[in-house]
Nucleic acid binder design. Sequence first.
DNA 1: TTAATTTTTAATCATTTGTTTAATTTTTTT
DNA 2: AAAAAAATTAAACAAATGATTAAAAATTAA
Lengths: 216, 216
Amino acid sequence: MIKKITKPAKVVKKDLNTEEKIISAARKLFTQHGFVATKTRDIAKEAGINLALLNYYFRSKEKLFDIIMAENMINFIQSIGVVINDKNSSLEDKIYAITNNYIDLLIKQPDLPLFVLSELSRHPDKFIQKLKVNEVLSQSYLIKQYNGAVLSGKIKDVHPIHFIANILGLTVFPFVGAPMLKNISGFSNDAYIELMLERKNMIPAWMKSILIADVI
Amino acid sequence: MIKKITKPAKVVKKDLNTEEKIISAARKLFTQHGFVATKTRDIAKEAGINLALLNYYFRSKEKLFDIIMAENMINFIQSIGVVINDKNSSLEDKIYAITNNYIDLLIKQPDLPLFVLSELSRHPDKFIQKLKVNEVLSQSYLIKQYNGAVLSGKIKDVHPIHFIANILGLTVFPFVGAPMLKNISGFSNDAYIELMLERKNMIPAWMKSILIADVI
DNA sequence: TTAATTTTTAATCATTTGTTTAATTTTTTT
DNA sequence: AAAAAAATTAAACAAATGATTAAAAATTAA
């Protein structure tokens, strides 16, 4: 008699318990394909566990997803979060740190921003409130420094949300648009990563020039 | 006896034939929710037609999707496409035209970039080849102007792919990241659109300063 | 060791979903 | 007006999917 064996899709990390195996597989698949495109059976297969264990440990697909979503959101904003309230670094230092953190993070996890932004778009309310990015950022030392520099005339008077949009646009967009930009440039994946590493030094210089550019 | 009536989800555009109604509904739903999250029954309901007509006219969900995808990709790159080979405009003019085109387009269709970039990420090969963005752009007059300006020392020697990434990052990212940026800024939808309109004039100035910024 | 508890499994359920079918209605052609 | 072709419909199908169940196996407590 032939026994049907459900074997793990790839390498199931050893010395993880069942709960951790499921989280690990869910993290990978949800982040790669999003909520709707990820099937519970795919997660079970990837984790090398019985399908029923997913519900046994996490009640439902959605509850499991919420855990990964929260994880990924925090992950995504931490590149800014760890920097913004540092009293010992200049505005310029912070710009460098933010782009540097992001580029390192996104080279390791290129799917992260598209995942976070896609899922946020589908549930504008559900997740975004919890993080309180609003208060945390607007009360941050970074924004105080920015407004101070505006007042002292060191940089142009532009709403700080433009500043945030610009630094994220220059840093994160090349990863979100990677499939398109890789094709446009004809670069291989490795060459493209090299290009992203180049930007670690270029973006701070560009941001600096943006801050003093005459916009009227 | 009660007759069950399948009525259109919202307003079905008058004087459209069945085929057009389906395309119109598919365009709306696919662009809003992507391929997997959009169900054929939702399209039929939105179009106010019988479910079977979808397959009658378009064979399958995927074939219908491919039409919308092609449409949206062309739509998305046309903001650049209509500009890049104009011999009578300067590099500066082209930057302004591109950002202007994009911001107008994305205010009308905010879901467009996230849709295109998400679906491209899930099928890196399937769609991207057809457009030949690679050759069209690299052979374009815009890139010739860019390289000419580099040679004449008017702008810094930076690979043109950075230039493309930067203009798209500054212009498109604020729409892709809108749910997050709206929350951060606390702006209403209207106020946020106002912010995007502001950027029509700011981004060209910023791009100009980026082009001459010292990046070594 | 035995009993109780926890974990794992295979099978099954109820919906959902893309697609097809066969019959009916409408439109076009003769 | 009759016949042929095209469009539309309700019903159904098969596969996929999230979740549950009841039994078995493994672990822990007594």
